[in-house]
Nucleic acid binder design. Sequence first.
DNA 1: GCCGTTTTCGGCCCGACTGTTTTCAGTCG
Length: 577
Amino acid sequence: MENRDLAAMFEEMADILEIKGENPFRIRSFRRVADILHGLDFNVASTVMENPDKLRAIPGIGEGTMRKIGEVVAVGRCEEHERLRAEIPASMLPLLRLQGLGPKRIHLIWESLRISTLDELEAAARDQKLRTVPGIGAKTEGTILNAIADYRRAQGRFRLDQALEAGAPLLAFLRDEPSIVRLETAGSIRRRRETIGDIDILVTTAEPRKAIDHFLRYPGIRSVLGSGETKTSITISKGLQADLRVLEEKSFGAALQYFTGSKEHNVVLRERAKRRGLKVSEYGVFRVDDDQKIGGETEEEVYQLLDLQPIPPELRENRGEIERAENGTLPKLIEESDIRGDLHMHTTASDGRDTVEAMTQAALARGYEYVAITDHSKALSMVGGLDEEAVLRHCREIDLLNERTRHVRILKGMEVDILGEGQLDLSNEVLAELDVVIASVHSHFSMPSARMTERICRALENPYVNILAHPTGRLILRREPYAFELKEVFQAAIQNRVILELNSYPDRLDLKDTHCRLAKEMGALISINTDSHAGSMLRFMRYGIATARRGWLEAEDVVNTYPLARLRTILKKEAYR
DNA sequence: GCCGTTTTCGGCCCGACTGTTTTCAGTCG
C-alpha cells in the first residue's frame, strides 16, 4: 500500500465530514495528516508495523491516525472510512472543488433537492430549480454554472509554466497603468509551486478606482467573478483566475507575506506571533495588549519582528523552514546564475528540432561553459534513436565541432533506454566512448513496484551510467509516476556514484521538490537539466531552478554548477560528494 | 483529531466579499 492511497483516504474522510458539517478542527486534522503522508519519504504501511514510534513522533500524527492506519494495513479497510462513505454518495465529493460552492450549501442542496452529481447540479441550475433552496438566488445559480464550466475546463489547476505565460501579458498591461505604484505577484506563483490555482496580484495606488477599472479593461478578460473596494477577480485564458488586491503602502509587506502563503506556513507564523503577545494579519504586526501596530511595511520586517530570518517564498510550506529561520540556518538556495551548463538535450540526430551546432550556440548565448548533447538510443526507434554505429559517428562529429568552438565545451553523451530487465540499450564498448551517459525509463511503465525498483537499480550498477533521468516518469496533471521504491533507487544511485536528474521540462519537474530534498538529505548529487528538444527550450532551466529551490537545494548540491574540471571527476566516478 | 513553558480539557488564524437571511451565513484565501 502506497502513502498516497492512505492520504487519499484521509482526504476523502475530510471531504465527507465537511459536507456533513462536523467539527472543522477534526477535518483540519485529517487534511493535515493527508498532507504529511504525501510528503513522507518512507512507506507508511510497512513502518506502522515495524517501527510505529517513528510515525507517531511526527507532529500532527496522533493516536486516532495511528489506529486508522493500523486498521487499513491489518485488514485492508478502515471502519470509520467505510461508514462515512456509506453516508454520502461519492459523486458529491467533486462538488467541493467548485469555486463559490462550499460544504454547507452542498449539504443543503442535497437535503432539499437530492442532488448528488455535477450533472444534476448543472441541470438544476439551468432549470432555475436551485433558487428554490433557501439562501440561493438567481445570482448564486449563475455563479454555480460558471464554476461548473471552469471546473470542467481546467479541473482546477494549471502548470506553473502555463500560469506564468498566461499571466505575463496581464502583468505587463498593469505595469503600463501610471496610477499603479507597486506591483507584485503573490500566492503559489510566487512560491513557484508546480501547479497553480490562480494568479494573485498585489498593487498599491493612490487611486484605487482607477487601478481597478484598468484591470477590468484588460483585453484578455473572459469573465468578471467579482469586484469590490479591495479585491477584484477575473478569469483570463483557459479559465485561469486572476485576483487583483489593492493595498495600503504602509502594510504592503504584511499583505505580501500574507497572500504569498502557504496557508500552513501562515498558520504556524500566527501561532508563533500569538505566543509572543503579537498578532499578524495582512495589515501588519500588532501588539495584542494595546492593539498598537509595530510593523508591516516590508516582508522582512514581519519575519524580523517574530525573531526569524526572512524566509524565501519557495520554502514557505511549513516543512521545517520556520525552525531553521529561528536558528538562522536557512539554506542559501541555488540561483539560475549558478548554472554553468546543461547536461541533457536532443538534436536532429534523434527527435530534436535543432542541430548540434545550433544547440551549442543556444548554450553559448546563455553563457554556459559546457553542454552535453544526449540524443536517444535505438530502443526509441520511432524518434530515430541512434544505434552503436550512429553513436560513434555522432561522437566524431562532436569532436570536430569542439575543435572549432570556443568558450563552450561540448560533451559527448547519450540518453540510453533502460530495457525491461534493467539492461541498457547500447553496448558498454560504445558507452565507454562517451563523456556523459544518461539512463532513463521510457517503456513498461506499469510493471510491479519490486520489479521496477530492481530494473532501475540494475541499470544504475552499469559502470558507465552517470545520470538517472526523470527518475519517477510522472507528467504533471497527466500521468502518475510509475511504481517503485524511491529510497532504494536513491541509495543505489549514491552507491554507484550516479547523479539524479531534476528534469526542468515544464510538464515533468522530475524529481519534484520533496524528492530533491530527500535526495540531498541522503547525500545524492543532482543535475538540473532541461531535456531540450530545441535551442529555445534551454530557458526551461528556470522551472528546474524553481523546483530545486523548493527542494532546499544549494549550488553545491547540483553538479552543473561546478566548473568543468570538477564535473569531469564526477562523471569519471573519481569523486562524488 | 491533535496538543500542552499557562492547559490532559478546551482550545485550535484572520478578515473581506457576496448574496440575500433586514443582521448574517457561507465561502475564499
